[in-house]
Design a binder for these strands. Structure first.
Lengths: 142, 142
DNA sequence: TTCCTTATTGATAAAATTATCAATAAGGAA
DNA sequence: TTCCTTATTGATAATTTTATCAATAAGGAA
């Protein structure tokens, strides 16, 4: 909501344009948080937007750092507004998720930067493992 | 090559089976390293295997921790044998890649484990940023 | 405002990925 | 070895994602 004008200016500065479609998708992500392409399409379908446009727009916004892409662990990707940076841990057995404070990775990232010479902009990382409960239980088949 | 018998035993212990298709895909990844589903299919096509089987097998092997999935940054996923754990940095501008020693993340991971109670098994993480060259150049449009 | 350039979209087709289900074959038991 | 159970595959259809290209509309200039 309040960030649309700022993004509009940012896009124009690069020669891009703010369209009603991009606006609607950003709004959907603002309201919905973590969403898959299909979920986003559901929320903007009423505007008459095409699915192709949804995919194109998501790719465009992600390339420009406005959205973050996260691996959901099921082979599919989810999108979210960047800015509220955080990471996820997903339990391989029961699927439980929890957020991880990005500050935890800050030291490792700055060390990587000094060793590689790259400048890293933290994306959304997904870690996989076993949650406290599944760690105890005898590993039952999925 | 040398790890197939070990994996066969591991699978059987879980009630799964080692098939010629799984064998061929593991061999392709052993030879090829990082491969997309399409690249893998090319390498095993001569066996008469179906594309559906390739996707199914990759998902199966990844679920069982035999393969790691990595986000290639283009919205698609790549697969590799787990075991040779490492991470990647990809430059957002020119696409340059470099490997990162997983030891760099070890402290952060153990801290995450103690704070969350999860047991993490390191997957293949992909970090995005700017390589030393692109960091200097005025950001040119892709 | 009106005009103009061109980034963006919709429509459509193509390609990639997943789901369904009967036929096959892995591997344990006898 | 032969038989049996059932995990796995192939064939096929359905769904998701991407590519192509002409039509539209954002937004700068006059």
């Amino acid at each position: 909501m309040s960030c649309i004008p700022r993004l509009t200016i940012m896009l124009r500065a690069c020669g891009y344009r703010m369209t009603s479609q991009r606006h609607a998708i950003l709004q959907a992500l603002h309201d919905g948080g973590h969403l898959s392409p299909a979920q986003i399409y559901q929320r903007v379908e009423s505007t008459g937007m095409t699915e192709a446009t949804v995919y194109r727009t998501l790719e465009f916004l992600a390339e420009n750092g406005i959205l973050l892409v996260a691996d959901r662990g099921n082979g599919h990707l989810a999108y979210e507004l960047s800015g509220e940076s955080h990471h996820h841990i997903i339990c391989r057995t029961c699927g439980a998720q929890m957020e991880v404070d990005p500050a935890l990775l800050a030291p490792a990232i700055s060390q990587m930067e000094s060793e590689t010479g790259y400048h890293l902009n933290a994306g959304h990382l997904t870690f996989f493992g076993l949650c406290p409960l599944c760690k105890q239980k005898p590993q039952e088949r999925a």
